[in-house]
């Protein structure tokens, strides 16, 4: 198994367990602490997804700032046993949990059917999803049409893992791989730029700069609103 798969499985299992703990634990402090561990492991999954900038933001803003705010409020309220209330298991709770499991099953079935590429699957309606293949490794060469080639076979779009851009290529039976045209080999490494501070920043301050400014106004309004609400008695 590739190391990415092993790390993903470990992280996914721990995330599901600790997020279940967030929901089931009775004491809010315990819930908040398991939410912190969920956030930290989510940052690990972000790092697996080649998103170092978002992983750092996740640790600093979520696990740092937001969860400190939560813990601060929990300690300020200092709820005792009588405020927390009895632990009750009613029929409606089981129905809700069953409904959520059913919903998850339906979504998971939809996801796997969409991506499987089986004939008759809904991917004919969404041809884009079937092309979202796993990222090839640095020295792995793939044809975009995902077909096995014979000697001298021509592929319109060949791409190398770790390289940007596409070019035509031919199949080389001796090495059992696709040979890209030389211009592809010269292009800049794609995965060295993907998800870094510089390129995410270029996107935020370029294409999405208006949204960024609007977020600034929203944060200002939220801060003023929080101060006003927390100050006055309802």
């Amino acid at each position: 198994m590739a190391s990415e798969t092993i790390f993903f499985l470990i992280l996914a299992f721990s995330i599901v367990v600790s997020s279940l703990l967030v929901v089931t634990l009775r004491n809010p402090i315990h819930s908040a602490l398991s939410l912190v561990s969920t956030m930290l492991m989510m940052a690990g999954v972000y790092a697996l997804l080649n998103a170092p900038f978002l992983a750092v933001i996740q640790v600093m803003v979520y696990a740092g700032a937001i969860m400190v705010l939560f813990l601060f409020v929990i300690m300020l309220l200092n709820l005792g046993d009588d405020e927390l209330g009895e632990r009750r298991f009613t029929l409606s709770k089981f129905i809700t949990a069953g409904g959520a499991i059913f919903l998850f099953g339906a979504v998971a079935f939809g996801i796997t059917t969409l991506g499987s590429g089986e004939p008759g699957s809904p991917q004919t309606a969404y041809p884009g999803l079937s092309r979202l293949v796993a990222v090839p490794g640095a020295d792995e060469v793939a044809c975009s049409e995902a077909r096995a080639g014979v000697e001298g076979d021509h592929c319109e779009e060949v791409w190398v893992g770790g390289q940007e851009g596409r070019a035509a290529g031919t199949y080389d039976a001796a090495s059992k791989t696709w040979r890209p045209a030389p211009e592809l080999a010269r292009s800049v490494a794609l995965w060295e730029r993907f998800g870094t501070v510089e390129w995410v920043g270029r996107s935020i301050f370029g294409k999405w700069v208006f949204l960024f400014e609007v977020t600034g106004v929203l944060l200002l309004a939220a801060v003023i609103g929080a101060v006003v609400i927390a100050k006055r008695r309802l």
């Binding site: 997804l49 080649n50 978002l54 979202l132 990222v135 730029r193 993907f194 999405w208 949204l211």
Partner: peptide, 19 residues
């Protein structure tokens, strides 16, 4: 990430939205 892999070109809109 997988769109970037499929396009062979940078597509960081998802990162911006997460931000």
């Amino acid at each position: 990430r997988y769109r970037t892999g499929a396009l062979g070109a940078l597509d960081l809109d998802g990162h911006v939205m997460s931000f």
